[in-house]
Write a protein that binds this DNA or RNA. Sequence first.
RNA 1: GCCCGGAUGGCGGAACCGGUAGACGCGUUGGUCUCAAACACCAAUACCGCAAGGUGUGCCGGUUCGACUCCGGCUCCGGGUACCA
Length: 985
Amino acid sequence: MPAYRPEEIEKKWQAHWKAHSTFRAENHSEKPKYYVLDMFPYPSGAGLHVGHPLGYIASDIVSRFKRLQGFNVLHPMGFDSFGLPAEQYAIQTGQHPALTTEKNIETYVKQLSSLGFSYDWDREIRTSDASYYKWTQWIFLKLFNSWYNLDTNRAEPLTALTAHFAERGSEGINAAGDADERQVFTAGQWQLFTEHQKLAAVHPYRLAYQQDTYVNWCGGLGTVLSNDEVKDGLSERGGFPVERRLMPQWNLRITAYADRLLLGLDTLDWPDAVKEMQRNWIGKSIGAEVTFPVQGHENAQIKVYTTRVDTIYGATFLVLAPEHELVNVLTTPGQRVAVDEYIAATKRRSERDRMADVKAVSGAFTGAYALNPVNNEPVQIWLADYVLAGYGTGAVMAVPSGDQRDWLFATHFGLPIPAISDAQKDIDQQADPTKEGRYINSGIINGLTYKEATAKVIAFLEEKGLGKGKVNFRLRDAIFGRQRYWGEPIPIYYKDGTAYGIAESDLPLVLPEIDEYKPTETGEPPLGRAQNWLYKDKYPYELSTMPGWAGSSWYYLRYMDPTNEAHFVSEEAEQYWGKVDLYMGGAEHATGHLLYSRFWYLFLKDLGLVSSNEPFQKLINQGMILGRSNFVYRLNGIWAPYTPSDKTVEAEPPVYISMALLNRINAKTASARDHAILKERLNEIAEVWNALNMPAAELAAIDKPDFLHVTALHVDVSIVDNDVLDTEAFKKWRPDYANANFILEEDGSYVCGWEVEKMSKAKFNVVNPDVLIGKYGADALRLYEMFLGPLEQYKPWNTNGISGVGSFLKKFWRLFHPEDGDFAVTDEQPTPAELKALHKAIQKAQEDIEKFSFNTSVSLFMITVNELTALKSHKRAILEPLVLLLSPFAPHLAEELWEELGHEAGSISTARYPEFREEYLVEDTVTYPIAITGKVREQMQFAAAAPGSEIDTAVLASDFLARFGEGKSAKKVIVVPGRMVNVVV
RNA sequence: GCCCGGAUGGCGGAACCGGUAGACGCGUUGGUCUCAAACACCAAUACCGCAAGGUGUGCCGGUUCGACUCCGGCUCCGGGUACCA
């Protein structure tokens, strides 16, 4: 075969791999296992752009490398196929989301296959298949039927709880969650409960539970919106008003696992940034809960949470969240109007808005007073939206001298700001939260240090029953329901208003067909449109569906045993594959998917269904590939000299000036030739300049313009090559460019400007991998994406460089086919130089892959091939191992050459990585120039020797030699001018 | 504000444990081949300077015979996050 033809080779081997299921992973093997997982994609209609495969290429290299090292590798792919875009498309067109999704997946599979990934496609899963979501529902039911026992620190079946109730009532149960939500009863009372009452008593213990939760409700759209979807109190889509509303919602009790999720992070081999994000997200804080009695309300108490209980003597007022349950009771008639107004104003703002304008101080006085438990001083009770209902107790004790927000509030409303520590400074200017110094104005802790005071206050409060130390988490339970169609139905039905889980044997609860995908007129979710959708033909189902992260929280387990109909994963398969050894994906999932998956894993572990402590041992975040946009510059005005006040007009027909020329003129570095070109061209097109307030005569009078005003416009990167615009293609690109005029460079080219931006259709900077594969081949694209820069770094795409790896592959090919001729590899003995080049590569390639430093490994291959080309090396002993080294990166070419080398087709996937032999690396000598100064100079006494002369190494003092490396010895010492010697080591 | 990263030629980026900064690729320039183009190949390419030489890894300072690398103090850029009491 003459010349390297990637398209033929790639088609051939992709077909071979598919026909032979070459990358099928077996669940039983003598080999050690290795599980390489990619975050599975949502199959969007736009298909893949050149940024998407970056992580897939890297993980594929690792998979293929691990196979060469003798591992049984599991490398699966699937689709997160429930999601909003398909549903929105369905609302607009009536097309069933399943059809859209199916079509998109087809495109994805085709594109992924064309990159030559070594996925085991037999294990492909889709979260929207009933055979998959059956098990997502099954896990939900397990959560629904479990509670979290804090005594054993794990989730347990509800049967254990009800057994306890029957024997001893609610006493002695120590369960995760809010105790206030739960009833207190005796065993006798429990026995007398009706079924309905029993379920009501059990419900608040469940790990999947329904509860009234504040949500962003948009009546106009008939759905709950996430904080991202609300802007200025209006829905982002449609602009309908959004309000905070208490609605029943399904929640998962992730908070029960807060501590374990936090501790587990220390055992993981993850990027520090991701671990830190999860830590902040969980947000553990250690403090105290303090109870303030309310003056004149015998039964009312306000609980506050504080991390600075030592500052309690400085607490001159309390602030409640506007949603606080006691607000109504406490408000005095005189303050009623002000309070109601304030609450109404707060309701109109979404949580995000409240957080957005942090500077505006607002609040309302309830008229009521609480008593500071340490000194019985009356303190005013206020409302303010800077206190969040969802964190701590929804109430804070305000210490204006120590907390900046409290200080601002006190200053704004004229409340007192007493100092509490002798170390506080300038508290009339701002709060000072110091922990230094001794307490003042602080009753029983006057004169104490921070540590002593904290202990003493807590002891005092505990004794009086008005406070106790408490750990708090920022993490909140996860809202689990969505008022949408295209998701997993929640397997719950209602009997007399009570929620029941459907029987496991009735799973899956299949998503019913409906004729429209909008919410119903009465505001029910789309599932409310389903006809006769009843459990046992009697009981209505839950109408909300699961959120996007449900199916993705356990998919990696299903890959181990994807077609099992009896179990979500068989015990043997789970025990064999264990956890994911390498997980590759984007950093944007740091606090969503990665946290929920860990939560579900811990839960399954508590139930004895999985065997490790964490699901993902090592995590790599591939950096995003950004787009490189190109611009053309439309001329709007010409000045000589430039007067900024002049108006500009878009010339019609339009004139576009080349960026390089434009920049030279505006930077005043233009040559006489530049000006001549400009002038000549302007004269040619002068007749079209009338619209520019630039009559031809006036134009002709301008000799040397020194400023050109332009508008930069995005231009499709596919009609730009190396920043040079294809002007004919530009005219055809869009109708309004058909009559474009150009001012070109001297060589006749139009040079575009460029900028790095996110890839998006609107910026015309999306690069399609299919086009590049067609031109250079998948192997070249794979190599180039790796060559672009460090894997984890954000980097701009630039198609310009891909020709370099293209020619590298050609050179590699030519080592086997000299002069583009027939295959001609010899059995000659290799020379030391060839062996050295090879073994350097064997060693470094392995190191680089293990460090995920793929950009340097590609460089290494280029260097090696350059060396071998220079040596005219066409020897089997060198080239055969080299093919193996290259096979993870450029698998198609490697397979082809492997076959030409006389091996059975496809057998490279069972070959072994070549062994590194150190003896072939002849060490290079290194020369260190060493300055001769001070003591050394005296000792050596030869600084004055003639430059270039050699000195006996034995003369060197041992302490001098020690400076440039333990165990190294000088081979030669050469005197160079300037009190220096070169020491050759 | 807080928490992470980062800063090296015209561009993307190399540089082991402190030891010749700029590997490799792109681009650019010159050349070979060709009727010509494309491909390919060869050579040059940090900056200033005709040269000798000098200057250079964001800035200021320190340690060291020697610093992109270590230490102290900044500047700028990117990402994450926040009335969390």
